[in-house]
Amino acid sequence: MTAEHEITLVVNGAARRARVPGRRLLSDCLRHDLGLTGTHVGCEHGVCGCCTVLLDGEPVRSCLTLAVTVDGREITTVEGLAGPGGLSPVQRAFAECHALQCGFCTPGFLCTVTALLRERPAPTDEEIREGISGNLCRCTGYQNIVKAVHRAAELLAEES
């Protein structure tokens, strides 16, 4: 009853094939089938946000998505955020503002914030807190993450 499915995901710009059972979570497919372990798994019930990736540019929970459901779609993980010139503005801002400690939740935040700033290039404090409100961090108390989102917005504005 558990037939395997051939799927193709376009991950960080490259087509990747995998053979997965229907129940394979996208988070596990990325981490264990494709070796992209930057996407982390913190709760597997959709609350912590560690596993957030971009699906066709929109942030989604990879632990609440079956790999087979997104066959053929484009996925960006934390490994795909940096450009050829190095860290992305969001990544640079996180380093500059000390917005990470243990780093476990960080990939999820980076994906969420990358999408947030595409939609709102100059968010207010409140919009930032609302925008990242689906991601748990146990280390930072969020203050420096909020600061980093503002800083990333500045860096993005400077670049464009």
């Binding site: 009853m1 558990t2 037939a3 499915h5 059972p21 229907g22 129940r23 979570l25 596990d28 597997e44 019930h45 079956l66 087979v68 459901t69 066959d71």
Partner: peptide, 11 residues
């Protein structure tokens, strides 16, 4: 915390 096995149908 992994799903139990099932048959996946994608009509």
């Amino acid at each position: 915390m992994k799903p139990p096995p099932f048959s996946h149908h994608a009509p």
